[in-house]
Design a protein around this nucleic acid. Structure first.
Ligand SMILES: [Zn+2]
Ligand SMILES: [Zn+2]
Ligand SMILES: [Zn+2]
Ligand SMILES: [Zn+2]
Lengths: 149, 149
DNA sequence: AAGCTAGTTGAGACTGGCTCGCAACTAGGC
DNA sequence: GCCTAGTTGCGAGCCAGTCTCAACTAGCTT
């Protein structure tokens, strides 16, 4: 909910209109636990209120990505997903490969590594992506409790 | 060329057949400078010898990924690409956003960071992806020489 | 060298994610 | 309330990647 409010005000700040469709997308995203796909958003929007058109879902998602409120993640499976996230702070996501829940982590000392890479390769690195996959605490316990299968 | 030989022997080791199609794909990959798409491989194969079927290109690429001879990279643009790389050593790729050339870099001290993340999040991280983008030395020079657009 | 068989391929239909174009609609300023 | 640029919906279209299945062949066997 507050997530969706953040979206609304961010839209305002960016001089974008506060339309019904965008509100619907924002709400749909707010109710996602972990990462989600465009289809998920579409499905939620169809279930509640008036459905948002497929094209519009993609347009809004792109917009939110531009605003830094949502980020694209490429799952190991090759699927494209999105995660809601805090704007204005460079960070990365740790995604649970069992349930999809995701948490943000900061830069945690990556900077020196990047510098070392720039030095050794001669590249001027201007962006990077670090995606971490594993089991979240809950799924870890679940896995430990039922080791078979 | 040696690249393609490496592929051939790796196929043998994995008990896979050494077919014409796979040879063609291996050669097509060997002549790619940086990252490439499935379409690129398809195009090269069509230009030389007998063309390899679309489906087969994807199948071979998947196989090579399994063997660790090729890796998938998700470009910032969202496109899926591949890079040829050394097998048997965990590493990452630095990709030039201008010309596509890519070089491999090792782990360079990422381990402690991962441990810190596991500790602070409670996740059991079992895989990660680090992709670096920037300008390679050549493109950097080119950019410096012609600063206007 | 010929035979055998499981692994592999080609062709093309098919799917599903995503984009495009454009007329209708509306948020927000006046 | 009006105006207009920004936005949406719809539907057609596009394209990467998958699937099916009959035909083919690498490599072993005799
Ligand atoms: Zn989980
Ligand atoms: Zn970072
Ligand atoms: Zn370059
Ligand atoms: Zn690594």
């Amino acid at each position: 909910m507050e997530q969706s409010n953040a979206v609304l005000s961010a839209l305002g700040d960016a001089g974008k209109r506060l339309t019904v469709a965008r509100r619907a997308v924002a709400e749909a995203i707010a109710e996602q636990a972990g990462h989600f796909t465009a289809e998920d958003v579409l499905a939620v929007s169809r279930r509640r209120r008036r459905a948002v058109a497929r094209a519009t879902v993609f347009r809004s998602l792109d917009l939110l990505v531009d605003l830094g409120l949502v980020e694209r993640v490429d799952l190991p499976s090759g699927d494209h997903a999105y995660v809601a996230c805090e704007p204005d702070a460079h960070h990365h996501h740790v995604v649970c490969s069992a349930c999809g829940r995701s948490v943000e982590v900061g830069e945690l000392g990556l900077r020196p590594i990047l510098e070392r890479i720039e030095f050794s390769t001669g590249f001027a690195i201007d962006s990077h992506r670090l995606e971490l996959f594993g089991l979240c605490p809950e799924c870890r316990m679940a896995a430990a409790a039922k080791p078979s299968a």
